[in-house]
Design a protein around this nucleic acid. Structure first.
Lengths: 333, 333
RNA sequence: AGACACCCAUUCGA
DNA sequence: TCGAATGGGTGTCT
């Protein structure tokens, strides 16, 4: 509540451009300047990043995306099934250029009127300006912010081919990250009950997301880094995903996939691979256990984003051991 | 989110005047035209009403008001006390003609540079063109838009004699109306904390306003109707109050009244009356509990202002039962 | 009690 | 498009 000034103002269009420490300074550059563009940020870093980022990130991406999303979204005899099937969820073509050590992608969910009747939610995935892998989709099923955030991450994993490079997913949803990072093991143990004894929400989504992560680790051995970023800090990628999510929320309703079926399909594939490996190397070599690396950033109020803290979590076939449904299937099949 | 074009543009001063359906048409009449006056409206009705409304409703009122306001406002040995005392806040003379079933009055607050250092706020009350009860006053104390809006309503209640007819106060401040309409009971219960746990702002103002409403209900049994109107829709009364508020903001600073003292004075008077009534009619007759009627209008985007929905709220001695300070005073007095 | 999101509403202004 | 003044809520977990 203390109005402790600690803000910066980035002026992108104005008499002088640059970063200014006080509002009056910023105002002096923008007031009365036609088409001025400026923004408040909690840190100088963020302000500078905003200045560096291109002005119209999504303009050209948008139209194509809307069309793409509409096609997928509109229930019709020819594509209704496809939407809910895994095949329609196959990876998109990857751009040919490979330019960095790890793949970075932003996810975001939005939900107009969250908690209200008649709310509508959207999902956004942003790889870069004009990147064909970008997504703007209507959130299927219940329209809540948290579902949209989870599904955004799921959609990334569904549409991104495995690769040897780490995949860095940046989300501003602490909830989504914590679901897979810190709460999932306990939930498995305690039968998907919250600390308050109530059933965990969005279980199908969370289980499917966990399965997708497991699959990726098992197949490629590569890392998935879930990194939390604070929303609305001017970070280009987050803003991009946000805009795409808002766009997605305007699309027509879509049928909800059968998340459990999707998860089982993934798990079946994993089991096959596990069996093959066990057969070819039966000398006590345990199933692949890879790491889910979760990167943490400091909250924006600290002023600096320090070198990311890294928490590491065991992942892999743990799920097989903790899931009754799966054990049953294995026993019977 | 749909940018569904359905707007009209009224040009009051420009190359051609009238109502135009598109922004380019409107722009053509106004761009570069010195002193152009134009406005966007959601409906043609509103646009036409704006054109019909006299251009300078207040011109003749203004000079007298400025003088009047200056006299009241200027702190001087002879009137400084009067400003803060209830006696100086006595009702103004009412015009002799009585012309309708209920009294309608518009309130508005304005605040130049709201939130900035050096902002200055004004209070406007509009009864009609050239009505002597009109007010244009500088906002005392902190200069914020919301304080000005609250004080505008307070000033109406302070300066308007009780009457058997309902008093309709039209304000464009949803905040002010909600303060007394929907949030006040909860605030009393929860110790004047907001939903986020922070202290409610402008508490003295709100308490005093509530006391004035209670007093009015108790004394006269008449209704006070708080009606929300949307700002800048061309409604004459709202525009009038707006102009007066802007005028008030240009007046010199005024000392801030002791709102708590004012409230206590009102509450003391109420208690006396309550006691008298209890004595003269001790047969379980409860204290007067009247209704605060809150009228709601549709937002302007719907295009039509339908017959007002009416929500009714219990008011009256509830405050006596919920205010510890008061209970203490009663016990001691 | 805390955290991260998602918003909703009305103003006041530049 | 940007700022501030002000309030209300849900989604979710610990």
């Amino acid at each position: 509540m203390p109005k402790a000034a600690g803000y910066c103002y980035a002026v992108k269009k104005g008499r002088k451009t640059g970063v200014f420490d006080t509002w009056p300074e910023c105002e002096a550059q923008t007031k009365g300047y036609p088409g001025s563009k400026y923004h408040k940020f909690p840190t100088r870093d963020k302000a500078e990043e905003y200045l560096r980022s291109p002005n119209e990130v999504f303009a050209s991406t948008t139209r194509a995306l809307v069309e793409h999303a509409r096609l997928i979204a509109q229930p019709s005899p020819t594509n209704q099934l496809a939407v809910a099937s895994t095949s329609a969820r196959a990876p998109l073509p990857v751009p040919t250029q490979i330019d960095s050590d790890s793949d970075i992608v932003y996810s975001d969910g939005s939900c107009r009127g969250n908690g209200q009747k008649g709310s509508y939610a959207g999902v956004g995935v942003w790889w870069g300006s004009d990147d064909p892998r970008n997504l703007a989709e209507r959130c299927p099923g219940d329209q809540t912010n948290n579902r949209a955030e989870l599904i955004a991450i799921i959609r990334i994993l569904e549409t991104t081919p495995h690769s040897s490079r780490p995949l860095v997913i940046k989300s501003d949803s602490r909830y989504s990250i914590d679901c897979v990072q810190k709460w999932l093991p306990g939930w498995k143990r305690k039968g998907w009950r919250t600390a308050g004894g109530t059933p965990v929400k969005n279980v199908q989504l969370i289980k499917y997301l966990a399965a997708l992560l497991d699959e990726r680790h098992q197949k490629s051995g590569s890392k998935v880094v879930l990194q939390h970023v604070y929303g609305h800090q001017g970070e280009q990628g987050n803003e991009g995903a946000d805009a795409l999510a808002n766009l997605g929320a305007t699309l027509p309703e879509v049928p909800e996939p059968d998340w459990d079926a999707l998860r089982r399909a993934v798990e079946t594939a994993m089991r096959k691979k596990a069996v093959e490996e066990a057969v070819s190397a039966p000398f006590g070599a345990t199933a692949t256990t890879t790491q889910l690396v979760v990167q943490e950033t400091k909250p924006p109020s600290t002023g600096f984003v320090e070198p990311a803290d890294v928490d590491e979590f065991e992942f892999g076939l743990e799920l097989l051991a903790g899931d009754d449904e799966l054990l049953n299937e294995i026993e019977q099949g």
